[in-house]
Amino acid sequence: MSSCNGQKESGLPTVFEANKTTNQVHRDDRDVVTNGLLDKNGDMWFTTLTEGVYKYDGSSFVNFTTQDGLCSNKVNAVIEDKAGVLWFATSKGLCRFNGETFATIPLPQEDALKVSPITGLRSRTTQEVLSLIQDSKGGFWLGTLASGAYYFDGETFTSYLRFKGRIHPDDKVYNNVIQSIVEDDFGNTWLTSQTHGGITRYDGNGFTNYSLKDGLTDDMVFSSFNDRDGTLWFGTLDNGLMLYKDGGFKFYDETDGLNNNMVSCFYQDQSGTLWIGSFRESTVTWFDGEAFSVVPFDKDQKLVELRFIAGDKDGNVWFGGRYGLLYRYDGTELKDFTHLKRMN
């Protein structure tokens, strides 16, 4: 186990009034719907890489963009905190929305010239936040595009894992991409690196890193999920699933029935079935606790290149991904909302 003292910086928000814009039509095939969230009011929120954020109340969509105060139209994730405030992970830092106003909270850049005490090499800097959770103590963990992770207590940022993962061969700079973060049932925080940093666990005192040397099948990890039984699931870029329970890892791939070895997202429905999506040309896989199977309602392979799977208040399952893809499955019909979300 290794411990790390993080650098602390203050986070000062810039506040904008929110004007809810509608009837905006976008036709950007490069767009990706990155995340879906059911809020405490029963509304669904969908984040995108070029169109900002969509809110769906069950009958119509409202689009929020930079014109409404959103700090960037490139939004990677959204969470709702314990007070009901929404937090967006964007290309320009954190964006907080209280239902009326947006507040932009940039990441600190003062440590850009710091170097690793071990190698003497710098880390790449970025404002882009890829992943975000609020932990059980009320603080926020942020995963960045290139600078490791930050812990934000509401006022101060503390930097972690900046000098971990891949050192870029061209400019000899650390480039640790933290693609996902999850908290386990014991209050430990798990951070996954997409740039050969493996999986790192923080127990409140120090960090433990799991890599290929520790038996991982892949040290580029894209997604993570804590199921109802307290089992942690990790999806890799090329080598399937890694399951962590009772202090050890177990592994699954296409030879076990998984539909694709690239795993981008998870969802667990009311029956306990795990839904597993891929950001490649493969549809969704079900796992019932014993065996994997391909979902039977997507014969036409519409649910490919997914970034999220999420449930709504009525038990419907939503899917989002590349080219602005947005679908809803109600148990009978798979309905396409890809362009409907842009027409309201």
Rank of each mutant, 00 (worst) to 15 (best):
G204Y: 08
Y151W: 08
V32E: 00
L132P: 05
V317R: 10
V173G: 06
T200P: 08
V177P: 02
L130Y: 09
G58E: 10
Y327I: 03
V33E: 04
G139N: 13
D246S: 15
W286P: 03
F249M: 05
L38Y: 00
K20M: 13
V53G: 01
T101V: 10
T338I: 09
S131D: 01
T50C: 05
E17M: 07
T65Q: 05
L340F: 09
F88E: 03
Y151T: 02
H168C: 08
T66C: 08
F319Q: 13
K299Q: 10
V75F: 00
G11W: 07
N344E: 13
D28F: 03
D185A: 15
T66A: 07
D184Y: 04
T231N: 05
G154C: 13
S136Q: 15
L142C: 02
L237I: 13
Q7C: 12
Q194T: 12
L161F: 05
T158S: 13
S193E: 01
F46E: 03
G315F: 09
I276T: 02
Q7F: 14
N226G: 07
S91D: 11
G148C: 08
E183L: 06
G257I: 00
G11S: 10
G198T: 13
V294L: 13
K20Q: 10
N63F: 02
W275L: 11
T119H: 06
H26I: 01
W141E: 01
D135G: 08
S211R: 02
A103C: 03
E183Q: 15
G139S: 12
G324I: 00
I199F: 05
A112M: 06
N98T: 08
N316Y: 05
V115H: 11
E305N: 15
P108N: 11
V129C: 03
W87M: 04
P13G: 03
G206F: 09
S211W: 04
K114Q: 12
P296C: 01
D135A: 00
P296T: 10
G143Q: 07
K245W: 06
D312Y: 11
T273A: 10
L340K: 02
N98E: 04
L94R: 09
A112V: 01
L121M: 10
D300V: 08
G52V: 02
D170L: 09
G165N: 11
Q67V: 15
D214N: 08
G324F: 00
S60G: 06
C95T: 02
D298T: 08
A77L: 01
L132V: 03
A146L: 12
E333N: 14
F207W: 04
L94Q: 04
D81A: 09
T34C: 09
L306G: 06
T34A: 07
R27K: 10
D39I: 13
D214R: 02
V15R: 14
V173N: 06
G204P: 07
F287Y: 04
F279W: 06
V182E: 00
P296H: 05
F207L: 10
W190C: 00
F266K: 02
G235H: 09
F297P: 01
I178W: 07
E110S: 15
F297W: 12
E183H: 11
S159L: 14
F266N: 01
Y174V: 11
S223D: 01
